[in-house]
Amino acid sequence: TLFEALYDYEARTEDDLSFHKGEKFQILNSSEGDWWEARSLTTGETGYIPSIYLAPV
């Protein structure tokens, strides 16, 4: 399942991933609670993103 960003997000740590509204992600690991490891389909970068900023596509 792909997810789309509902809002912009600016990374706060080196493990976080910055993204823009409308960016799409492949989720790599969603077992860490509210922060999911994801790969951006726009940039190819991976990192942790807040799941509350996402909606399934």
Rank of each mutant, 00 (worst) to 15 (best):
S18I: 02
A11W: 02
E37Q: 13
E4F: 13
A11Y: 03
V57G: 04
A38E: 00
G47K: 03
R39Q: 09
G33D: 11
D15V: 14
Y53N: 06
L17H: 03
E37C: 14
F19N: 00
A38N: 00
R12Y: 08
S51D: 03
Y9H: 07
L28C: 07
E37T: 10
A11H: 06
S18L: 01
S18C: 05
S31F: 10
E10T: 13
E14R: 11
L28F: 06
G44H: 07
L2Q: 06
G47R: 04
A38P: 00
T42P: 02
W36P: 01
A38D: 00
Y7A: 12
D8V: 03
Y9V: 03
E4M: 12
L41G: 02
L2H: 06
D8Q: 05
E10C: 12
S31N: 12
A5D: 00
P50Y: 13
L6C: 08
E45W: 08
L6Q: 07
S51M: 09
Y9L: 03
F25N: 00
Y7K: 08
E37D: 04
T46P: 01
G33N: 11
T43G: 03
Y48H: 08
F3E: 00
S30N: 13
E23R: 00
L17M: 15
S31P: 10
A11I: 02
L17D: 00
E10H: 11
K21I: 08
F25M: 04
E14S: 13
G22R: 03
W36K: 02
A5C: 02
Y7T: 09
G33Q: 12
E37A: 08
H20Y: 11
E32W: 10
F3C: 05
T1Y: 11
Q26V: 15
W35T: 07
E14W: 08
E4D: 02
R12E: 11
H20C: 11
P56E: 09
S18H: 07
I49A: 05
P56F: 06
A55T: 14
D16C: 14
F25A: 00
E4S: 05
T43F: 02
Y9W: 08
S30T: 13
T46S: 09
K21Q: 08
E4A: 07
I27Q: 01
E32S: 14
I52K: 15
P50G: 07
A11G: 11
E10F: 10
G44D: 06
A5H: 00
S18Y: 03
Y53Q: 05
W35M: 12
P50H: 14
I27Y: 02
R12N: 10
S51F: 08
K24M: 14
D16T: 14
Q26H: 11
N29C: 09
W35F: 10
L17A: 02
H20W: 07
D34K: 08
E45I: 10
T13F: 15
V57P: 04
F25W: 01
S51W: 10
A5M: 01
A55P: 01
Y9M: 04
F25R: 00
L41E: 06
K21D: 01
E37I: 15
E10P: 05
G44P: 01
S51E: 05
E10I: 14
D34W: 11
A38R: 00
V57T: 08
E45V: 10
F25P: 00
E37W: 15
E10A: 11
L28Y: 05
E14K: 13
E4W: 08
T13L: 11
Y53M: 14
Y7D: 09
A38M: 07
T1K: 12
K21W: 04
I27C: 03
I52P: 07
E10K: 11
Y7N: 08
I52E: 14
G22Q: 02
E45A: 13
D16N: 12
P56L: 08
S51P: 10
L54C: 04
L54P: 01
G33M: 12
F19R: 00
K21G: 04
A5F: 01
T13A: 11
I52G: 14
T1W: 12
V57R: 03
D15W: 15
V57M: 07
T42G: 07
F3S: 02
W35G: 03
L17C: 03
D34Q: 10
L28N: 04
G22D: 03
G47C: 03
D8W: 05
S30K: 13
Y48K: 13
V57E: 07
T42V: 11
G22A: 03
E32Q: 15
F3N: 01
E45F: 10
T13R: 15
N29F: 07
P50T: 04
S51Q: 08
Y7S: 10
V57K: 03
L28W: 04
T46E: 09
D8T: 06
S31Y: 09
S51I: 09
Q26P: 00
P50M: 13
A38F: 02
Y7I: 12
L54G: 01
I27T: 02
Y48V: 08
T43Y: 02
A55K: 12
E32Y: 12
N29V: 08
L28D: 03
Y48D: 02
K21M: 08
P56G: 05
S31E: 10
T42A: 11
I27P: 02
D8P: 07
S31R: 10
W35V: 09
Y48M: 14
F3L: 04
S40D: 02
E32P: 09
L17E: 01
G33P: 15
T43C: 03
G33A: 13
S40N: 11
E23C: 05
W35D: 04
F25I: 02
S31V: 10
T46V: 14
T1S: 11
E32L: 14
G44W: 07
R12H: 11
L41D: 03
E23P: 00
D34H: 09
L54V: 11
T1F: 12
Y7V: 13
L41V: 09
I52H: 14
E14Q: 13
L17F: 12
E10M: 11
G44N: 08
T13S: 14
E14L: 12
Q26K: 09
Y53P: 02
P50L: 14
D8K: 04
G47Y: 05
I49N: 00
E45G: 08
S40K: 12
G33L: 11
S51T: 07
E45S: 10
W35Y: 13
W35P: 07
S30Y: 12
E23Q: 07
S51G: 08
S31G: 10
L41I: 09
K24S: 05
P50F: 11
W36D: 01
S51L: 06
H20T: 13
I49M: 02
S31L: 12
E37L: 15
A38W: 01
R12C: 14
T43L: 01
P50Q: 13
W36G: 00
D34L: 12
F19L: 07
E10L: 10
F3T: 02
D8G: 07
K21H: 06
I27V: 10
F19K: 00
K24H: 11
H20I: 12
A11C: 06
I52V: 11
P56S: 07
S18N: 06
I52W: 15
Y48G: 04
I52Q: 14
S40M: 05
F19H: 01
G47M: 06
F19Q: 00
T42M: 11
T1L: 14
K21L: 05
L6K: 08
A55R: 11
A11E: 03
A5S: 06
T13M: 12
F19Y: 03
A55M: 10
N29M: 07
L28I: 11
A38G: 09
S18G: 08
E45C: 12
V57H: 06
P56C: 06
Y48Q: 08
P56I: 08
S40E: 02
F19W: 02
T46F: 06
D15Y: 15
W35C: 10
R12V: 13
T46M: 09
T1V: 13
T1C: 13
Y9S: 03
K24W: 14
T46I: 14
L54K: 00
T42Y: 09
I52R: 14
E4K: 06
A5V: 01
L41K: 04
G33F: 09
S31T: 12
Y48E: 02
Y48P: 02
E32D: 14
P50R: 12
A11T: 05
T43D: 02
D8E: 07
H20K: 15
P56Q: 08
I49Y: 01
G33W: 10
